[in-house]
Design a protein around this nucleic acid. Sequence first.
DNA 1: GGGCATGTTAGCAC
DNA 2: TGTGCTAACATGCC
Length: 272
Amino acid sequence: MPELPEVETIARTLREGRGAPALLGRRIEDVRVLWPREVHGLAVDAFVAAVNGAYVAQVGRVGKYLIVELQRGAVRRPMLIHLRMSGRLDVLSAADAFTKHARVVWLLDGGLALRFDDARKFGRVYLPEHIDDVVGHIGPDALQIGADEFLQRLRDRRGVLKSLLLDQHFIAGVGNIYADESLFRAGLHPLRAAHTVAENDARALFDAVRAVLFEGIEANGASFDWVYPGGNFQNNFRVYGRTDQSCVQCGRPIQRIVVAQRSTHFCAVCQR
DNA sequence: GGGCATGTTAGCAC
DNA sequence: TGTGCTAACATGCC
C-alpha cells in the first residue's frame, strides 16, 4: 500500500491523533503476535519481553519505514514497521482490535490497542538495537536528500529512471505511483537511461519528486482501493492508473508498459 | 477463473 | 560489481 506520503500521514496520525487516540505517550502492557512471520529478527517471546512495559517516546519515518521509539527507564529502543503492500496501523479500542487480518496487536494503557492489520502478510516489524541495523542499507530519504547529491547519484547509475526511482538503495520512499507522477511532471520517459539525463532535466526530476511527495502528504496520501482510507491524492493523478485516458497536457492517450515488474504509466508525447 | 495490486528480496544470467 | 529478469511471499478484489 503505502509510499512515503502515506507512511508520513500514518506517522503524523500516530503522533497527533487526528480523530483517533494518539499512540505517542502510551504504555505498552502486552503484545499479541498473531502471525509470527511478521516479526523479523528475533523470536516472538523475546520480542514480547522486550516491548512489554515500554512507553512510546516518539513516532517518525525513514523512507517507507515507520519508526516507533520505545523507552523503558533510561533505555530507548527503536521498533520499525514496514507496511509493504497491504499493511495498516490503527489505534483503537482493544475490544475492537482482533479483526480478521490483525497480525500484531500491542495492548496499551487506557483500554486501547495499536493494531497492525495486513491482509497480504507481507508487512514486517523489527526491533533492532539500532535503527541502522534495519535501514542502514537503504539510500537517503527522498525528502532529505539535497539536489547536488541527487544529481551525483543519478550520474553514477546505469539503469532506467523508473527502476531507479523505485530502488530504495537509490533514494528511499518513492514507490510506483509517485515514481510515475514524478516522471510525468519532469517530462522524462520512464525508460530513459539515468546517465543520459542532462543536468537541467535531472534538476527537474529532483524538483518533481519533491513536489509530488509534498502534494501527497498535503492530501494525506492516496486512496483508491480497499487498502488505505482517508487520502485524497488519487484525485491529482495525472498518469497513474489512467491508461488510455487523455493526457492532461496534450490530450493523447496515456500508455501503460511494465518496467521493473511494475505497471508504468506515461505520455509518449510529453515524456522523452 | 484470470489478472491485477501503493513492496521487497533471493537467485540467476549477462 | 551492477543491472535486469523471474519467482516468491499471500490474499483480496474486479
